[in-house]
Design a protein around this nucleic acid. Structure first.
Lengths: 137, 137
DNA sequence: AATTAATCTATTAAAACTATAGGGTAAACA
DNA sequence: TGTTTACCCTATAGTTTTAATAGATTAATT
């Protein structure tokens, strides 16, 4: 299951990406428009800022704004920051690899074999979708 | 993340599928061979029995055995029973559909749009893999 | 300089889910 | 009738998720 954190994060990013002007947008506006609990959204936007997706401006007229062109943001990077590993099992993860405690030999593990295929197919979907792709009709 | 329940369940099923004879196999043997906590495995095998994948026999010489040919068991059915919905969001689930609370219009939701693609690609992987495919070298 | 509108930080709490353990019951077999 | 094995119910420690609360900090505007 996708966490609400990730769901809300993607919604916020696409809302920002679909703005005509790239002026800062207030948290409250995003929260209202996308039906997201404001304080929860606040912490999500913060991690998106700390990981280089968003810039922020404090004080009157402040808010959040995208730092890059939506077409330059593949969903692989978004998902990894918000949700964590894309792989369903650590032993097939590219960025978060870990060996299984059980399982003496990965190459003979049927779960490994299956989840490798799942990882590859999901990865391809995320790679083929940028923020720009998601907001285009 | 794949739950251990699902991971252990798949391992148990493939262990049973790879037996040369289709005599009943004891829980303890599966647990030992696949490094699965026995009591946990017990409950997993029970749900696999109640959902029609396994048969069981009590008493001496008892144990669990596959009811169908491994080639007739696609992973879609296994995953749905052990892990639940394949979709990452209920609003794109085929068998467990639910509308989102937020989100007035699914067709305009970027998360929906992305997760539809993920569901389809994962589904294809599971459909293309039966138990028999997993145990073949 | 005062005010106000924002973002930032930290704590914590409820709820749900996960992974397991314990102990007793029932059936099959020898 | 005794042994072996699956079956069933209950409890629980731990983790993760999803927030809510309260306040501190920053910066533009007046």
């Amino acid at each position: 299951m996708l966490s609400k954190k990730t769901k809300y994060g993607i919604k916020a990013l696409t809302y920002l990406a679909s703005q005509s002007k790239q002026d800062p947008v207030q948290i409250s506006e995003i929260a209202r428009h996308e039906n997201i609990p404001q304080k929860f959204l606040e912490s999500i936007l913060l991690t998106l800022r700390n990981t280089g997706f968003l810039g922020s401006k404090k004080g009157k007229g402040g808010g959040y704004y995208l730092l890059k062109d939506p077409g330059e943001i593949p969903m692989t990077t978004v998902i990894r920051v918000l949700e964590g590993p894309i792989a369903m099992v650590p032993c097939v993860s590219l960025n978060f690899y870990e060996k299984c405690d059980d399982c003496p030999d990965e190459n003979k593990c049927t779960v490994h074999k299956l989840m490798l295929q799942v990882r590859d197919s999901v990865l391809e979907v995320y790679r083929n979708n940028t923020l720009a792709d998601l907001i285009s009709a």
